[in-house]
Amino acid sequence: MTIYPAIDIKGGRCVRLTQGRADQQTIYSENPAEIAAQFKAAGSGWVHVVDLDGAFSGESQNLAVVREIVAAGMRVQLGGGMRSRGAVERALALGVSRVVVGTRAAESEEFVRELVGAFGPKVAVGIDAKDGMVAVKGWVSTTGTSALALAQRMDALGVSTLIYTDIGTDGMLTGPNLAAQEAMLKTVKCGVIASGGVSQQGDVGALGALAKRHANLDGVIIGKAIYEKRVDLAQAIADARA
């Protein structure tokens, strides 16, 4: 199981939002690339980056910062504003290892089919759920589509990785929604990266136990718990490898 420490970028700064709300913002650093370097020093090979400005506006806004993070020597998984093939191509051209498509995936299966055909495993689909229903456009809107139904369709299209975020737990430091994550793992054959709610070292162990039951749990994204020093990244990486 891979640990993906998270960097959310808004206005060029490293921030965290509570349940995706722009009015519930905490600034952690003016230099996201410096944070990425700290993650690398702790032993992380990957970093999960979200361009929040891109998620809200629909167009990537922080690619210069993403370029700096790539230059720090991390494998970058980037989401936020990936709503056109051009946006995906620009991100990959920067050296991003994997792009995450969210809103457009919920709107257009043909778009996902095209990207998977062109870029294969470099494309992941992010499914963000509120009460089991898909949320889009930076979590501002909730659709009438269930997360599990969308996941099944993405799996059938050949998507190799899904990132499943439970909005209700994201940024709340209340622990992951293990039942929701397990339901997703049972629904699809492709890899799943769990996101939302990790609040302590024990949560990493609980997800590790889930990974032993479901081989398609590829990893977990951890954000606020690292910044609030509730989770030690180096220890989490060691626990995930155990």
Rank of each mutant, 00 (worst) to 15 (best):
Q200V: 12
E109Q: 14
A238I: 07
A91E: 06
S199L: 08
D128S: 11
V50T: 04
Q38W: 10
D53Q: 09
F111T: 05
T169K: 15
G86P: 03
H214T: 02
R67C: 08
A6S: 13
S60F: 07
G58R: 10
A209T: 03
T143C: 12
E89K: 12
Q181H: 11
A72N: 11
I221E: 00
F111C: 08
W139A: 11
E182D: 04
R67L: 12
P176I: 00
I226A: 00
G20V: 06
K212N: 04
V49M: 08
L150G: 03
S108D: 13
I163F: 03
I127D: 01
C14W: 09
Q201V: 06
S160T: 09
G158L: 00
K40C: 12
V123T: 00
W46H: 06
R83I: 01
Q24N: 11
T103M: 06
D23T: 11
Q201F: 10
P32N: 10
D170E: 15
I69L: 13
I127W: 01
G205D: 00
F119P: 01
G223A: 12
E110P: 02
E59G: 02
V188F: 00
K224W: 11
G73F: 15
D166E: 04
S199W: 08
G219L: 01
R104E: 10
T145L: 14
A238L: 11
L233V: 08
Q200W: 08
S195C: 09
V116H: 00
A64L: 12
N177P: 04
W46T: 06
Q25P: 03
R241F: 02
A238S: 11
Q181P: 00
L150N: 04
R241K: 13
A129S: 11
D170A: 12
A240P: 00
L233I: 09
A147Q: 08
T26A: 12
L52G: 03
C14A: 15
A71W: 14
N216F: 07
Y4D: 05
F39N: 01
V198H: 02
I163S: 01
C14P: 07
D170K: 09
L148V: 09
A71I: 14
C190Q: 03
V96M: 08
G132K: 10
D239Y: 07
I7L: 08
G43D: 05
Q38R: 15
A180E: 05
G168N: 10
G11D: 07
L178N: 02
D53Y: 10
G197A: 06
F111H: 14
R90D: 15
G117C: 01
G223V: 08
A242V: 05
G197I: 07
A22S: 14
G73R: 14
Q25C: 14
